[in-house]
Nucleic acid binder design. Structure first.
Lengths: 220, 220
DNA sequence: AAAGAAACGGAGTCGACTCTCCGAATGTAA
DNA sequence: TTACATTCGGAGAGTCGACTCCGTTTCTTT
């Protein structure tokens, strides 16, 4: 019984089932939310219920693995995005690639929120701060990006664009129109409209997107 | 037993409990999602479990009532938004008021999706098409709005901005920066960047936002 | 190809939640 | 104030899903 880390198992069937479970979990959680019955996951993956729990001690363990895989995927996107020819192209690439990544994974916001409950100390996302700020600084320095925009502003825009993934597959060919509008709004212009309020600290944004606290109640 | 429509009940306690239940349901569903236990709703509203089910036959009945109330609230926003002095001000008001309304009600997207399952034929939201198109037409005619933007584009932007409500109360002072960026992207400019793809039919947008179909699976 | 270790399946247990039922309490109308 | 209709509270029946247990099957190694 080596249920802690079946990825490293010697047995081929165990590794295959682990991958299948992860793939089906992404699909299932995208369609029905991260509270979907795990017995259903077993059926979809074509394994017994026991096998689900051998690979993931409980739902939270599965959520954690999806989270860490996601962080790894995002980290893998960084080099290409950061090394674009111009700073402006980096901004474009950042918004497009990350929003697309998010949009294809509608379960990610829920996974982030739950992770904050499971293990508030685990915050690898903080490590993206420098990459995002680097993109903003370069584009601002070359004069293509409006100067009052911060890295956090961009990160929030990415979440907004990616949130259209909640629409389902139908949104895929469509959200790039909103991306184009946003990009036009980000360009440096001779007639700037001041952005209201103050920019947010990256850490505050991180906590916000992981929404620890109670979500906004209607105030009536 | 008049459990079909307790709003019209003669008894004061019944009306008061109905209102309390609705208010607490909004809060509860905002914090924990629309699958939160209804017994918890009973506790929060300070009533017995039986009372919940006397007012709402089941969870779906509650969802439907929240949906219809929401449609009514949005309808009430139309006059002020449409009657702004200029078309551009209407665009600004539309994005701001409706995104704010959505942001304060994080449960709304989930309610819309569930409504599409409960009763696919009930689509009062279709009635907003003319109002939105009217705003776009006027702003376009006066030359303030970029001409390639459609009413559906605006509606999608509203959903995007409103989605930040998922961040919880902390987002409240912040999202207007994104609104300002979007508005700048919407202004008519001498150097237009063409929007990619084709605009969407309003009905298609409606179905998309109510996401009947399966939500986008990761394609790997 | 034989043996042992590891993983598998799925029936079963346990807890949580939904919804019902009815005696008690409350509001209304005369 | 009395009488009655309506609503209330909360215990409990029924259902569903999370997770466990163990006899069986499948790898891997020699």
């Amino acid at each position: 019984m080596k249920c802690v880390n079946p990825t490293a198992s010697t047995r081929r069937d165990a590794r295959r089932n682990h991958e299948r479970l992860l793939a089906e979990a992404r699909r299932l959680f995208s369609e029905r939310g991260i509270e979907a019955p795990l017995d259903e996951l077993a059926v979809r993956a074509g394994v017994g219920a026991g096998t689900v729990y051998r690979h993931f001690a409980n739902r939270d363990a599965l959520v954690r693995e999806l989270y860490d895989i996601g962080v790894g995927e995002l980290r893998d996107l960084v080099p290409e995005i950061s090394s674009a020819e111009t700073g402006w192209q980096s901004v474009e690439l950042y918004l497009e690639r990350v929003a697309e990544w998010l949009g294809e994974r509608p379960y990610v916001p829920a996974v982030m929120r739950r992770m904050a409950e499971i293990d508030p100390g685990h915050r690898p996302g903080i490590g993206f701060e420098d990459a995002v700020n680097g993109i903003v600084d370069r584009a601002r320095a070359e004069g293509s990006l409006r100067p009052d925009v911060t890295g956090v502003d961009l990160a929030v825009l990415v979440d907004m664009l990616g949130s259209l993934g909640q629409y389902g597959g139908a949104y895929l060919p469509y959200w790039r129109r909103q991306l184009a509008i946003v990009l036009d709004g980000l360009r440096a212009r001779p007639d700037p409209t001041a952005l209201p309020g103050a920019g947010l600290a990256f850490e505050a944004f991180h906590d916000m997107s992981h929404a620890k606290g109670p979500r906004s109640p209607v105030m009536d």
